[in-house]
């Protein structure tokens, strides 16, 4: 086997419970959280502001505005076993790949136009 194939063979496989995602999507990420011996599922709902490809190292960043208007961003590895599943709630019409401009906006101007497919 070639080096590339050997490396691929030990890497984690794609998570089948993650659909195709794109920047601007409103998503719910279901995370497995371990507390002592218990495992529970935590949800993180927000807008994808960045997708990074790269196979085994691919990741995406979800931004949500928490209480008091404080923005919270979390980056998830696409192949992490901690992700139970991802649900896409809404697609948006966006004109760029990285939606960093959302960080400077609040209220009405931080909305994205919905895209129906």
């Amino acid at each position: 086997m070639s080096n590339q194939e050997l490396l691929k063979s030990v890497e984690a496989p794609d998570n089948p419970n993650i659909p195709e995602l794109s920047p601007g999507d409103t998503v719910k990420v279901f995370l497995r959280i371990k507390e002592g011996n218990n495992e529970r599922i935590q949800e993180f709902r927000g807008t994808i502001i960045r997708m990074r490809s790269g196979g085994n190292n691919g990741n995406f960043t979800v931004r949500r505005v928490a209480s008091n208007g404080i923005g919270v961003e979390r980056t998830f590895l696409l192949r992490s076993p901690r992700i139970e599943k991802v649900q896409v709630e809404r697609h948006s019409k966006v004109r760029r790949a990285q939606l960093y401009y959302l960080r400077d906006r609040t209220g009405k101007s931080a909305r994205l136009k919905q895209k129906f497919s």
Binding site: E11, A12, N56, N57, P81
Partner: peptide
Amino acid sequence: KVGMTQIF
């Protein structure tokens, strides 16, 4: 040496 990657 084959190379580097990351696993979980």
